[in-house]
Design a protein around this nucleic acid. Structure first.
Lengths: 235, 235
DNA sequence: CTTAAAGTATGATATTTGTCATAGATCCTA
DNA sequence: TAGGATCTATGACAAATATCATACTTTAAG
């Protein structure tokens, strides 16, 4: 009937249980359903742009999203990813500053928009929701401070190994042990913080070391423990 | 009379207005006063150590604190600073994970300890406090994601210039335009993410470029705009 | 199906940065 | 105030990485 025919309902959202919305009751979910909207994005489409003020938060229904910042002379730096159940854009709401990153779909994605009003209402009315968001922002900081340390101290090869493991954690592996996301060498370079050529060479090295295999664009992880050791993430 | 004779009162704390506690009422401040304790630290003393579970948050009454992580083979990475009015240790409380950084006094400092119970009670009872903390953690993320980008993309010299500006923002300048904190070249290197020798050489370069002057351990900023341009932070 | 465009790959070279060695300066303590 | 320890400084060299040039490969568009 309405223009919202394709809009998924929160109550039946497959991603809800692992999201910050898990503790809301039916009434609260219905309220969100009433006010939210949902958009579908193709690979490469921009969901929101760094620098503008956020007017609400975005909740990923399904798909794969990269969050990146423009650094030196326009070079992209990927700082985070989001998949089903993750929310994005909330930092800008909370800090009352412009969005600090651009969100881009890496794949066909469905993303709901929840207006600021509802977001702040949930924070005020539902201490458990508030705590969930606090937990989320705290974990973000902890990940970020680790990333700062690694960027500052590790070699390019170690960082590459670490990023491959991060991609595995975030997007998982397919039946064939390949990392289940399509990124260009340039995008990988923009995570690692190096030149595209360096990534190509270093992926070649990792292949020679039998840590990975390259099947076209797909990266297959052959020796996860070896990558962990190389990246110097525990042993 | 008691062992808390030297413990400063929240109500008269000079740093309170710029802290997250600014919106609490007298009753709430009194409650904190009852439960908190205060410790005094000399330069170099450790306030808390990375890896252990936090049992409360710390509020800096006055002094200068560095927060650092152990990276590759024990090399320190400084990820944040705290001064009067700042709270530290809360991320670990909120994420329910061990402390992700070590806090060390850079100077004679007074730091209050507020038990977890009080902290969570304030979050539950006082939505404005909750929002303050959310604002803080969101800003932390935004700073961190900028730092990640800069670590990944900028040259060592640019990062050094940026860190000098960061120190200026955090600790201010003394009467003589010198950055008002005493850090060793090694500590600066541990912010910038490079070797001590590189910092020494690059400080020499900045001096030749008349952007700074070195007076013993003190670093005098001669051309702040020049540093901003070099660090590629706007223009 | 053809062609242009984009992405991937590889080599050569220049630059930056890390590492090691050493020496001078400063600070602290006995 | 002498002496050791730590911090700062500088040179020489090695290693890592960026940059530029070029070719190959895959993808997308007409």
């Amino acid at each position: 009937m309405s223009e919202k025919t394709n809009t998924p309902k929160c109550a039946t959202c497959g991603s809800r249980n692992k999201s910050v919305f898990c503790s809301l009751n039916t009434e609260q979910l219905t309220q969100i359903d009433t006010d939210k909207s949902c958009e579908f994005y193709q690979k490469g489409e921009v969901i929101f742009k760094e620098g503008v003020m956020a007017r609400g938060i975005f909740c990923v229904n399904n798909g794969k999203i990269k969050l990146s910042r423009m650094g030196q002379s326009g070079k992209e730096q990927i700082v985070r990813f989001a998949t089903g159940g993750d929310i994005i854009g909330y930092n800008s709401m909370l800090s009352k500053k412009p969005l600090s990153a651009t969100a881009t779909a890496l794949d066909k994605s469905a993303v709901c928009f929840i207006p600021a009003k509802n977001f702040f209402q949930m924070i005020r009315d539902e201490p458990n929701f508030s705590l969930k968001i606090l937990e989320l922002t705290a974990k973000n900081w902890e990940n970020a401070s680790r990333l700062i340390t690694d960027m500052a101290q590790k070699t390019t090869k170690q960082r590459l190994a670490e990023m491959l493991l991060w991609l595995k954690e975030t997007f998982g592996l397919d039946e064939d042990n390949c990392i289940d996301v399509q990124l260009s060498r340039e995008e990988i370079a923009n995570m690692v913080g190096t030149a595209t050529e360096a990534v190509i060479r270093l992926l070649g090295d990792l292949k020679k070391q039998k840590l990975i295999a390259l099947e076209g664009k797909k990266i297959k992880l052959l020796d996860i423990h070896g990558l962990v050791v190389l990246a110097d993430l525990v042993d």
